[in-house]
Design a protein around this nucleic acid. Structure first.
Lengths: 343, 343
DNA sequence: CTGTTAGCGCTTTCAG
DNA sequence: CTGAAAGCGCTAACAG
C-alpha cells in the first residue's frame, strides 16, 4: 500500500506531541471555540512541525457526509456549462466544498453511472443538468439517497429543488427590443422543439408581439435542427431567397446568430443597417463576432452559485423541514452593434 | 446526522441476508474471481434487493487511497482548459475514477488551498496547470505527499511527470505554411514573453525561417500584452499604418488572429487575398470566424487523457520503481480559409 | 475547557 | 473458496 507511507502522521501522533488528547486535536480544527488559546497554539505548532494532513476519508466516514458536491453536465466544453461550472466551483470553494466534475457526454448511460458514483462517494448533493428526459430514473436515484438539484430544467422533477433561467422572458426581451427599434416584420430562427428552451423563447417572442398589439402571424419562423453557425448560415441563405428581407432576425442562440450575420454580410448586406440580428446566450463568441452581437445574457455563474447554496441548505435542513424550491433567474438584454439601441 | 439515515444498508447486512460473511461481500465487488459463481449471485441479489450502495469513504479509509483525481486549472471557462478537462474526465471515467475540479482563477493562493484540499482527500494524484511560477512550493507539496503531474508546463518540475505540447514545433508549422504559400515578409503577432508558450512559438517561427534559408530579420514582430480579440484588432491597425502590408500574419493565438482578420476586413482588405492569417490553438472560434481560420491544433483532450494515464501509472509503481517522464505532444497544422493551401 | 471511549463501513491478513 | 477478526483515522457523546 503505497499511500500508507506518504502521510505518516495521524491525529493521534499530533496529540502525543502536543501533550493533549486526540479529541482536542480534532476540536482545534473543527471547533476552535471549544479550545483554549494556549492549547490551540500548541496543537497547531505540532501540526505544522509534523506536516499533519488530516484524512478526509476518515472524517467523512465518521461524520457520514462528505465535503464534496457532484456536478453533472452534458459537455464541459460547451461555454454555457463551463460558465456554470465556474460559478459552482467558486461558491463551493468558498464554503470549503470540493466539486466532482462529471461529463455525461450527452449519454444517459454515462449520466447514470456518474450519479451512482456520486452516491457511493456520499457527496452532499449532486447538481445535474440532465441529458435524459427520463426523470423517473432521476427520481428513483433521489429516493435511493442521492440528493439532487436540477440545473436549467426547471419543472422537471416533481420533488426537488432546481435553478433555471426564465427563457420566456429572454425571448420576450429580445423581440421587444427588435420591435422597438425596427418594425414588426421579424424572423425567428429557432432550434428544434425537443429543446424546452426553444419552445420557451418562442413563447416569449410571441408574447412580445401580443404585448405590442401586433398580429403574431407576422413573426415568421425558420426551424433548424442544430443550433450552430452552419445552420445559422443556411437559415440566412433561405432568407436571401425570399422576396422581402425582414427588418430583424432573432436567433435563439449566439452561434446561430453569428451564422446569420456572416451569411448576410458575405451576401453584401449590412448588419445592422439592412437587417438587425439578435442572438441569445451571450457566449464568448458574441463579443468577438465581426459585428458584436446584441444578445440576451443568462446569469450562468449565478446559476451555479445558487445551485451550491440551495443544495447545501437542503442538506442542513434535511427531512420534512425542508421545502423544495425552484429558483428562476432573469436574463438580461445586452445591446451591442448587431441590433443597436435606436432604429 | 441526516446522512446516516439515507443509505441504511451496510455490507454487514448484505452479508447476513445472503448468508455469507462481510468479507465475501467485499470480495464479490472487488475481487470477483475469488468468489464462487453461486455465492456471487446470492450476494448480488441481496445487494440489489436492499439497494446497497457501498460507502467509498470507508473503503478509502481502509485502503488508504481514493478513487479520485484532482484537476487544477486556471480557468475552466477558457476553452483550452475545458477541452483538457473533457479529456481528463473521459479517461478517468473509463478507469473508474472521479475528478475533483479546482478552478484556481489564476490565483496562487487559491491554487495552494485547493492542492491542500486534494491532499486531505488523499486523491490518487493532482493534475495541475500551475498559475504560479513558484515551483518550489509545488515541489514542497509533492514532498508532503501530494502526487503531482504538471500539464502544459513541461520542464518546470525537476522531479515529476508532465504532459505538454511542443509549441516550438507549432510555431514552426505555422510559419512554414505561410512561407510555403506566401512570401518571406511576415508579421508575428505575439503575446508577452512572460508566457513560455509565446517564447516557444517565436522560436519555432524563427526556426522555420532558418530552415528555409531566409534572414530571420524579415520576420517583424508586434507585441501585445493580452492575447484577445481587442489586441488583435490593435495589432492589425498598427499594421495598416505602416507603409507596406506583410504577405502573411502569424498570430500566436486564435483570438488574436480573429481580431486581425476582423480589423483587416473592416478596412476593406481581403483575407486571405491581401494578407494570409494563421492562428494558433484551434479554439471553437476558429471555425466560426467569418473567414475560417487556418491554425495550429493542440491535442487538448489527448493531453488530458495522457495525464490521467500517467498519474495512475505513477501511483501503481510508486517508489523508486517509477521513473518520471515528460510526455510531449505534437500539434498539427489545420488549413482553412484564412491561410489556404496554394498561394 | 479537556480526556475517554466507542465506533463509522469497509478491506485485509490469516486460518480454515 | 469462505469466515473471523483487526483496525484505517477521525468525530461525537459523555464525563470530568
Amino acid at each position: 500500500m503505497p499511500q500508507r507511507s506518504r502521510f505518516v502522521v495521524g491525529q493521534m501522533e499530533i496529540a502525543r506531541v502536543a501533550g493533549v488528547s486526540s479529541a482536542t486535536v480534532s476540536n482545534t480544527l473543527n471547533k476552535p471555540h471549544l479550545v483554549a488559546d494556549s492549547t490551540r497554539k500548541k496543537v497547531l505548532a505540532a501540526m505544522s512541525r509534523l506536516d499533519f494532513v488530516p484524512n478526509e476519508a476518515a472524517a467523512s466516514l465518521r461524520r457520514g457526509t462528505n465535503r464534496l458536491l457532484g456536478l453533472v453536465v452534458p459537455d464541459i466544453t460547451n461555454p454555457f456549462y463551463a460558465a456554470i461550472a465556474a460559478g459552482v466551483t467558486s461558491e463551493a470553494d468558498q464554503r470549503g466544498y470540493g466539486v466532482v466534475l462529471c461529463n455525461s457526454q450527452d449519454d444517459p448511460a454515462h449520466e447514470l453511472k456518474q450519479l451512482q458514483m456520486l452516491g457511493q462517494l456520499r457527496t452532499a448533493g449532486a447538481l445535474v443538468v440532465p441529458v435524459t428526459a427520463d426523470y423517473s430514473r432521476l427520481n428513483r436515484l433521489r429516493e435511493l439517497g442521492v440528493r439532487l438539484l436540477l440545473i436549467d430544467r426547471s419543472a422537471a422533477l416533481r420533488e426537488g429543488c432546481s435553478v433555471s433561467i426564465d427563457d420566456v422572458l429572454g425571448g420576450h426581451l429580445a423581440v421587444q427590443h427588435l420591435l422597438a427599434t425596427r418594425g414588426p416584420d421579424l424572423v425567428l430562427v429557432n432550434g428544434p422543439d425537443s429543446i424546452a428552451q426553444c419552445i420557451d423563447r418562442r413563447k416569449g417572442a410571441l408574447a412580445a408581439y401580443a404585448e405590442a398589439g401586433l398580429e403574431p402571424k407576422r413573426l415568421r419562423e425558420i426551424h433548424v435542427p442544430n443550433m450552430d453557425v452552419e445552420w445559422g448560415k443556411k437559415a440566412a441563405a433561405s432568407l436571401l431567397q425570399g422576396d422581402a428581407l425582414p427588418e430583424g432576425v432573432f436567433a435563439t442562440n449566439d452561434l446561430l446568430a453569428l451564422g446569420v450575420v456572416t451569411e448576410l454580410m458575405s451576401a453584401g448586406l449590412q448588419v445592422p443597417r439592412s437587417v438587425a440580428v439578435m442572438g441569445y446566450g451571450d457566449l464568448p463568441v458574441a463579443q468577438s463576432s465581426p459585428v458584436p452581437l446584441s444578445t440576451v445574457e443568462q446569469p450562468k455563474a449565478e446559476l451555479g452559485r445558487a445551485a451550491v447554496e440551495m443544495i447545501l441548505l437542503e442538506m442542513t435542513q434535511d427531512g420534512p423541514a425542508h421545502k423544495h424550491s425552484a429558483r428562476v433567474f432573469q436574463p438580461q438584454l445586452i445591446v451591442r452593434d448587431s441590433a443597436p439601441a435606436r432604429a
